[in-house]
């Protein structure tokens, strides 16, 4: 049903990679969003650099294939320029939780109306499996042959404490659920993060671990604090929307009812306003 969302570009992901589940969930989510009245032409995507980012070439959607960690900034620029667009960024854990982390924290802080989908495979896959910000302690990769000596960060905890207004976790092994999360994230007005536990069959195969431990939660936590408790659970790994709240979004606080591109003032009007500034109050 969603084949038309492909581009014909050759897919180079490893067979069994969790990225396939994300790609299919996104395609299904786009269909669902269309049914809910969000037109495909109003979706704009971006991606960082990594295995995850190849999704950009596989999705027949408009957008800008950005650079490592900066897609978070790219999609905010798109949104601020034309708030009518729904923008989705695809990141990796190295990408969004490492190289581009500051953008993520601040996008959450300012409640930019964007959706970030982070393919969290707990390693830098495209660069041959080095440890990443979310690699577990002891993770062996070419830069940590004897095992990582650092503790991983918990991205959901970090996002919750940065003021994110929508925080979710998904798993490609539960594709229908992941699709629903993506739809909800895109529909949410404000900053949304979907952290996806993405098995990387080549460098970090987590299927077994997550097949056993993920557990769908039906309702988000009532408070941010309770959501933090969900985020740090270890025996089971809760997936679903951990937290969601309504808050004013950044671009509407800057201009309550003005779309910089669509409502651009005419040249005459602009020049008149400049003349006023030049003449001052004399």
């Amino acid at each position: 049903m969603s084949e038309e969302l492909g581009t014909g570009a050759e897919n180079t992901w490893c067979l069994g990679c969790g990225d396939f589940g994300i790609l299919n969930s996104v395609k299904n989510a786009v269909k669902e969003l269309e049914e809910r009245g969000i037109e495909r032409k109003n979706l704009l995507i971006s991606a960082g650099i990594g295995c995850h980012a190849k999704i950009f070439d596989y999705l027949n959607l408009s957008g800008l294939y950005s650079i490592h960690g900066r897609e978070i900034a790219t999609i905010q620029g798109m949104k601020f320029a034309n708030p009518e667009l729904k923008v989705i960024g695809f990141g990796g854990d190295g990408d969004s939780y490492g190289e581009g982390l500051s953008h993520l924290i601040f996008a959450a802080k300012r409640n930019a109306d964007i959706t970030m989908i982070v393919h969290n495979n707990e390693n830098y896959a495209l660069t041959t499996g080095q440890m990443s910000p979310t690699s577990v302690e002891g993770f062996k990769g070419p830069s940590t042959p004897k095992g990582s000596i650092e503790e991983p960060i918990n991205p959901l905890l970090l996002m919750l404490s940065s003021g994110a207004s929508f925080v979710a976790r998904g798993y490609p092994g539960k594709m229908k659920h992941l699709t629903e999360l993506i739809v909800e994230a895109v529909e949410h007005e404000g900053f949304s993060l979907v952290d996806v536990l993405q098995p990387c069959v080549t460098f970090n195969d987590t299927y077994e671990r997550y097949n056993e431990s993920v557990e769908i939660i039906d309702e988000p936590a009532e408070t941010r604090f309770e959501a933090m408790e969900l985020a740090v659970e270890e025996d089971r790994v809760p997936i679903g929307v951990l937290f969601k709240e309504e808050k004013d979004v950044y671009h509407e606080k800057v201009y309550p009812e003005f779309n910089p591109v669509k409502d651009k003032i005419s040249k005459e009007d602009r020049l008149k306003r400049i003349e006023e500034l030049i003449k001052g109050d004399e």
């Binding site: 971006s46 950005s66 999609i75 798109m78």
Partner: peptide
Amino acid sequence: NMAIGATMPG
């Protein structure tokens, strides 16, 4: 990077 993103919709 925001600037680059913003140029895309014009």
